[in-house]
Design a protein around this nucleic acid. Structure first.
Length: 688
DNA sequence: CGTGCGGCCCAAGAT
DNA sequence: GGGCCGCACG
């Protein structure tokens, strides 16, 4: 048997540079940590060092990019503390109550200070989809004529609004830089956003951006800010290159003199520009304090074999914005990474499935292997192939469990019970009653808003005869939920019991969906209260859809499929990267500006540097394009990704698969057929 | 006013 | 190939 899995911390003693970061005192510190340089281990040991020398763990704010990363850091820091105390193996269960994401910490702080800052303590949190729904509702109420000249969709409006908040830029500038097509609507958008903010406040809801915005505002108010600052002695932020301007503001306001602040990151791995992350945060960090923060650079890579690193370095060396940084491996030589050409995506799926099995024969468990791709949809054919061959897998990123309509329905009912003013939740819930359409739902919610009607009062509302029986049942359910005689998580059983008939009425595949609800019920059982469940599900939703294995299966071996974004911070013994062609990587959606293209390049860099021993990049030559229906389905020949330059390719062993067909399949055929730039072809097909 | 159906537009990454 | 909108029917 092979050792369990992936994220094996380098159990080496810290290098002198790492030690320097671990032992650094209270003055502000920036750790520039290249891929695989032991960043997480160093951060964990720094936390352990702080606690070991007397810091109170409940007064450490540890910001990570995901909650999963927070848990990992907590675990490793716990180990280190145990080692220091000479009790290795005895899990001291170091508990860091303030470890989590910026949004998670914001939610917790705002819940704690709600009444002090004019928020209702029972506020509910909207995820991106809810926010778009509310934006659409507000737009409707303002009677902005959507059809006249293509007013931006609710999703686009939300994206613009979110950018304004997170990048702290005025509307006009956001429109100019990112949404030029919407510039003509500047005035209407301004009105819309004002009304959107009013609606959120009236309904006691916060969106993702508010969790940061209110936190920042709290720290700008000198009556409340000292109380917030007084909570934390140390603030450590991981993945600092992917924070946005608003988050930078929060950090500076939280610790104006930088005492107790540590940030860690790598500008070469900045991949969240689309979410308003600004690499200037990390670049300007040292100079934003007097005296300037210390900088420690970790450049020794413990993860990958040298040839893998050579390939990754070559990708970055082509970059136009380079802060040239060359990682050196300590693990020494190995075989070259492979650049494998296959005929099309179906062959790609076959190749990867087969190769994964071959590597398992050679001792890599499935868990020690990952397949990475730019977009969640890129793995569709591979997923089919894996199912066909009974190869278990878990997929990270892409469409979430929570985005399924039936799961949203159930959560909306719970949210409505928690906060009856949450109109998006109430609207969704009301419409589940047969006979209640949009118009009736609006009327009912107006009545609820006017009277503050909850529980029993819902019975008194005037509903059309056709809907009255159904409404009575829903009102009874809501009354039970608000009086909360039924304890958590049992009340979810009541919700599901009420919802099941609707499920069967609304969907053909009710059985499969009922399975998801059972899954939801299991997850609910792991949270202490309805409020915590709703908050956590919104801020940190479960990662996979119904193929997510149930708890016992998680001990089994499974292959990891992940978007590159979701693979951040992870490592595997073997990594396959799919669709290294223009249009996929870089995505044809992201070739508008140099900055976007450079971010795509860093994305490839992140993908390559996840591999420890074996790296395989796959290039399908042919893509089937179904969109151009006028000509029927046809294929185009894809160009290999622009990032795979001659310099980069020289670092790979180039092969074709399957080897026997190589002569007939690829290169010969390619010369006959028209060679088309996939990017151009796809863009042209959708040009407005 | 609700619901079902056909045509049309769009297509990423995620706290 | 899927989700949304508008229209026609009940």
């Amino acid at each position: 048997m092979t050792p369990p899995s992936t994220a094996t911390a380098s159990p080496h003693a810290p290098t002198p540079t790492q030690q320097q970061a671990i032992d650094h005192g209270n003055a502000p510190l920036l750790v520039i940590a290249g891929a695989g340089t032991g960043k997480t281990a160093t951060l964990a040991q720094r936390v352990a060092q702080l606690v070991g020398s007397g810091a109170d763990p409940t007064r450490i704010l540890l910001i990570t990019f995901t909650r999963r990363a927070a848990a990992e850091l907590e675990r490793r820091a716990g180990h280190s503390v145990a080692r220091r105390l000479g009790r290795p193996g005895h899990e001291p269960a170091l508990s860091l109550p303030w470890a989590g994401t910026f949004h998670g910490a914001g939610a917790k702080l705002l819940r704690a200070f709600a009444t002090d800052v004019g928020l209702a303590p029972n506020f509910t949190i909207h995820d991106r989809g809810d926010s778009e729904d509310l934006m659409a509702l507000v737009r409707e109420e303002l009677r902005i004529d959507v059809t006249r000249r293509r007013f931006p969709s609710a999703a686009t409006c939300m994206a613009i609004y979110s950018r304004i908040v997170n990048a702290d830029e005025p509307l006009a500038q956001v429109l100019r830089a990112g949404f030029p097509r919407c510039a003509e609507w500047e005035e209407a958008l301004d009105t819309l956003f004002g009304a959107y903010v009013d609606a959120k406040q009236a309904q006691h809801v916060l969106d993702f951006d508010d969790l940061l915005l209110y936190w920042a505002a709290m720290l700008a108010d000198e009556t409340i800010a000292p109380r917030v600052r007084a909570l934390f002695d140390h603030v450590l932020v991981d993945e600092y290159q992917d924070t946005n301007r608003l988050q930078g503001t929060i950090l500076r306001r939280l610790k104006p003199d930088g005492v107790g602040v540590t940030v860690v990151g790598d500008d070469a791995q900045a991949i969240y520009g689309f979410r308003a992350a600004d690499v200037r945060n990390i670049l300007d960090f040292p100079a934003s304090f007097t005296p300037a923060a210390s900088v420690v650079k970790l450049e020794t890579n413990f993860r990958s074999l040298q040839p893998i690193l050579d390939a990754a370095n070559a990708v970055m060396a082509d970059g136009t914005e380079g802060f040239a940084k060359t990682l050196t491996a300590v693990r020494g030589p190995g075989s070259l990474p492979r650049l494998v050409t296959v005929r099309d995506e179906a062959e790609q799926a076959r190749f990867v499935a087969e190769d994964v099995l071959v590597q398992r024969e050679h001792g890599s468990t499935l868990k020690a292997q990952a397949v990475l791709f730019r977009s969640a949809s890129h793995s569709a054919l591979l997923e089919l192939e894996l199912l066909r061959r009974n190869i278990p897998f878990v997929k990270y990123g892409g469409l979430k469990f929570l985005e399924a309509a039936h799961v949203k329905d159930v959560l909306a009912l719970l949210r409505f019970a928690h906060n009856p003013r949450d109109r998006v939740a109430g609207f969704r819930g009301a419409r589940l009653v047969p006979g209640v359409g949009p118009a009736t739902a609006h009327r009912l919610l107006d009545a609820i808003a006017a009277t503050g009607a909850t529980g029993e009062a819902l019975h008194a509302l005037d509903v059309p005869p056709a809907a009255s029986a159904g409404w009575r049942d829903l009102a009874t359910l809501c009354a039970a939920l608000t009086t909360s005689t039924s304890a958590w998580p049992r009340e979810l059983d009541d919700v599901i019991a009420w919802y099941t008939p609707q499920l069967e009425r609304l969907y053909d595949d009710a059985d499969a969906r009922a399975g998801d609800l059972a899954q939801l019920r299991r997850i609910a059982g792991t949270f202490p209260s309805r409020e915590r469940f709703l908050t956590e599900m919104t801020l940190d939703p479960p990662t996979a859809t119904s193929d997510r294995p149930a708890a016992p299966l998680l001990d089994d071996d499974y292959l990891v499929l992940s978007t590159i974004h979701s693979a951040k911070g992870q490592e595997w013994r073997s990594v396959h990267v799919l669709n290294a062609v223009d249009g996929c990587l870089p995505s044809d959606m992201a070739t508008g500006s140099t900055a976007e293209i450079e971010e795509e390049r860093r994305l490839l860099y992140v993908a390559l540097t996840r591999a420890r021993d074996r790296l395989t990049v796959v290039v399908p030559q042919k893509f089937y394009v179904t969109a151009q229906s006028r000509h029927g389905d046809r294929h185009v020949y894809a160009s290999r990704s622009r990032f795979l330059t001659a310099r980069v390719c020289a670092r790979f062993e180039e092969t074709a698969w399957p080897p026997s067909d190589a002569a007939t399949a690829a290169p010969a055929a390619a010369t006959d057929a028209p060679r088309v730039d996939l990017t151009r072809a796809i863009r042209a097909a959708w040009r407005r």
